[in-house]
Amino acid sequence: MGYARWDPADWNSYNTKHVAGKSASEIFTSSKMKDSFDPSKIEFRESRDSDINPNSTPIILASDVTGSMGMIAESMIRKGLNTVATEIYDRKPVTDPHIMAMAVGDAECDRSPLQVTQFEGDIKIAEQLKELYIERGGGGNGGESYMLPHVFAAMKTRTDAFEKRRKKGYLFTIGDEPTLDGVTMKQAKRFLGLDLQTNLSAEDCVNLASRTYEVFHVILSTVGYAKYRLDEVKRTFEPILPQRILYVEDPDKVAESIVSAIQICEGANKADVAASWSGDTSLVVANAVRDLATGGGTGIRRLT
């Protein structure tokens, strides 16, 4: 998918008709997961080149929708998607973005711990984001299933970027809790439709996805679980994603932080990237990207 191109005019029209002046419950009206978003029923998702997008770059945005984290999906549909798409076109860290949205929950507690849209290059991604089921579930088990997106990306996506050019896409998970340690065989079968031969640890999941994606995690450091127990969240992510974690202090600046991480991974200077944003966004981005490795293209960097 992804055979069209982002147009801010389409965004403005869509936003006026479907988003502006509406509450989150009026925007996200699904009461259950759509079959078309069910990973267990998806053979694979494709990001393919086309005449209008000849050098496609797959970008996966996988947001926690448990508890209060549905606010991130709301922020993305109100302005975040447009920021990601237009800023990538303006700043040109990568070419021809194809965006996929994922909704992430808890495989130990939720009915729908992962939902997956198509890869899209135009306003269709906003239309699909609006149809995601914001379950607002989760449980008291000290984490969410942030590793499900990694396994899906590794085993159920096909991209011309990697197959033709050996160019990795980008995968960002977003949330406020620790990650549950990996994906079990039972979870993989039930929620992803995959027959694994062994349980996967969180590190296994990241390493699988890192073969074809530059992998990052966004921690919302001032809200929800992380606001009071940030050290617990860090302990589960820092060993498996060294120098690939963004600590974002303002949930409304997630999109800008993601674009900045892509720029830095593609070789831009961190200070220059932060300074390129106006007002308080510059400070939020500077803090978010402070610990990122500069440059990229080789997957997870482990320090010695």
Score class of each variant (00 low, 15 high):
residue 2 G to H: 10
residue 3 Y to F: 15
residue 10 D to G: 09
residue 21 G to K: 11
residue 22 K to T: 07
residue 22 K to V: 06
residue 24 A to C: 00
residue 32 K to H: 07
residue 34 K to Q: 13
residue 40 S to R: 08
residue 41 K to P: 05
residue 42 I to A: 04
residue 43 E to R: 11
residue 47 S to V: 12
residue 50 S to G: 05
residue 51 D to K: 12
residue 52 I to H: 03
residue 57 T to L: 02
residue 59 I to K: 03
residue 65 V to S: 09
residue 68 S to P: 03
residue 74 E to I: 13
residue 74 E to C: 06
residue 74 E to N: 11
residue 75 S to R: 01
residue 83 T to H: 04
residue 86 T to Y: 00
residue 92 K to T: 06
residue 100 M to G: 02
residue 106 D to F: 12
residue 108 E to F: 10
residue 112 S to A: 14
residue 117 T to S: 09
residue 124 K to V: 06
residue 126 A to V: 06
residue 127 E to C: 05
residue 128 Q to S: 01
residue 131 E to I: 03
residue 133 Y to G: 01
residue 133 Y to M: 10
residue 140 G to A: 11
residue 142 G to I: 00
residue 144 E to K: 12
residue 148 L to K: 03
residue 150 H to Y: 12
residue 150 H to M: 13
residue 151 V to Y: 08
residue 154 A to Y: 10
residue 158 R to N: 12
residue 159 T to N: 10
residue 165 R to W: 09
residue 171 L to G: 08
residue 177 E to P: 00
residue 179 T to L: 08
residue 180 L to E: 03
residue 184 T to H: 05
residue 195 D to S: 12
residue 197 Q to A: 14
residue 197 Q to D: 15
residue 198 T to Q: 14
residue 198 T to S: 14
residue 199 N to E: 12
residue 201 S to A: 02
residue 212 T to I: 06
residue 217 H to M: 04
residue 220 L to A: 08
residue 222 T to L: 03
residue 226 A to E: 05
residue 229 R to L: 13
residue 231 D to M: 15
residue 231 D to F: 14
residue 233 V to F: 12
residue 237 F to Y: 14
residue 243 Q to V: 07
residue 246 L to T: 01
residue 249 E to K: 11
residue 251 P to H: 09
residue 254 V to D: 08
residue 255 A to N: 04
residue 259 V to P: 00
residue 262 I to A: 03
residue 262 I to H: 07
residue 266 E to F: 05
residue 266 E to K: 11
residue 268 A to I: 09
residue 269 N to S: 14
residue 275 A to F: 07
residue 276 S to W: 02
residue 280 D to V: 10
residue 286 A to E: 13
residue 289 V to H: 02
residue 289 V to L: 05
residue 297 G to S: 13
